[in-house]
Amino acid sequence: MSIAINGATYETDEEGYLINLADWNKEIAEHIAEEEKVPLTDNHWEVINFLREYYNEYQIAPAVRVLTKAIGKQFGEEKGNSKYLYDLFPYGPAKQACKIAGLPKPTGCV
């Protein structure tokens, strides 16, 4: 499977996650977010950029519990909770946010 943006084609797996993480850019994120029906705000980008940094450091996409804790540590309690993250990414903060961030599906996500 693949997605096409501005004449370029990017390979994805059967669930729409990018195969080559180095392909990711802002336009790809916006395209995937549109398909996921997630209007990207500054709060979304905060989580997306956090996930990319986390992945660069640990080479793993965090599961939702780990993500919630890490977001809380970095951005404060009002953002480090499931309700806040599910409001941003209704189909699963770890799963959906990682897809938009161009990361692999988090371990333990179905």
Rank of each mutant, 00 (worst) to 15 (best):
Glu57Thr: 14
Gln59Tyr: 15
Cys98Arg: 01
Arg52Tyr: 08
Lys105Met: 06
Met1Tyr: 03
Leu85Ile: 08
Trp24Asn: 11
Leu67Arg: 06
Gly108Lys: 05
Arg52Phe: 04
Ala4Gln: 14
Tyr54Met: 06
Arg65Ser: 11
Tyr84Leu: 03
Ile28Glu: 03
Asn25Ile: 07
Asn20Tyr: 13
Glu14Phe: 09
Asn81Phe: 07
Cys98Pro: 04
Ile5Pro: 02
Glu35Leu: 13
Ser82His: 12
Tyr55Thr: 09
Ala4Thr: 15
Thr68Glu: 09
Val110Lys: 15
Leu103Ser: 00
Asn56Ala: 13
Met1Ala: 09
Ala61Gly: 13
Cys98Ile: 01
Leu18Trp: 00
Tyr55Ala: 09
Thr107Trp: 11
Lys37Phe: 11
Lys79Gly: 12
Val110Pro: 15
Val38Gln: 01
Thr41Val: 08
Gly76Ser: 09
Gly80Leu: 06
Tyr10Asp: 02
Gln59Lys: 15
Arg52Glu: 08
Gln96Trp: 00
Val64Glu: 10
Met1Ser: 09
Phe75His: 08
Pro106His: 05
Ile5Asn: 01
Pro93Lys: 02
Glu78His: 12
Asn25Val: 07
Tyr10Cys: 02
Leu85Arg: 03
Ile60His: 15
Ala8His: 12
Ala29Lys: 01
Trp45Gly: 03
Gly80Glu: 06
Phe50Ser: 07
Ile71Asn: 03
Arg52Pro: 08
Asp42Ser: 13
Ile60Asn: 14
Val66Ala: 15
Ile5Cys: 03
Phe75Glu: 06
Val66Trp: 10
Ile19Asp: 08
Ile60Lys: 15
Pro104Val: 05
Gln74Asn: 12
Leu103Glu: 02
Tyr17Pro: 04
Phe89Thr: 02
Tyr58Thr: 14
Leu40Met: 07
Ile60Met: 15
Tyr54Lys: 07
Ile28Ala: 03
Glu53Ile: 07
Asn6Gly: 04
Ala70Asn: 05
Asp42Thr: 11
Ala63Phe: 10
Pro106Glu: 04
Pro62Cys: 11
Gly72Thr: 10
Asn81Gly: 07
Val110Glu: 15
Met1Glu: 07
Asn49Cys: 12
Thr107Cys: 10
Ile5His: 02
Lys69Thr: 12
Pro62Ile: 04
Phe89Glu: 04
Glu57Phe: 10
Asp23Lys: 01
Lys69Gly: 10
Phe89Cys: 06
Ile100Gly: 00
Tyr86Met: 15
Pro62Phe: 05
Pro104Cys: 05
Glu78Lys: 14
Lys79Glu: 12
Val64Gln: 09
Thr68Tyr: 00
Ile5Glu: 03
Glu27Asp: 13
Pro93Trp: 02
Asp42Val: 07
Leu88Gln: 03
Thr12Phe: 01
Ser2Tyr: 13
Trp45Ile: 03
Tyr91Arg: 14
Lys37Cys: 11
Ile71Val: 15
Glu57Asn: 12
Glu34Gly: 05
Asp87Cys: 10
Asp23Gly: 04
Phe50Thr: 07
Tyr17Arg: 03
Ala70Pro: 04
Leu88Lys: 00
Gln96Pro: 01
Ala33Gly: 01
Trp45Leu: 04
Glu53Ser: 11
Ser82Glu: 13
Thr107Pro: 10
Glu53Pro: 05
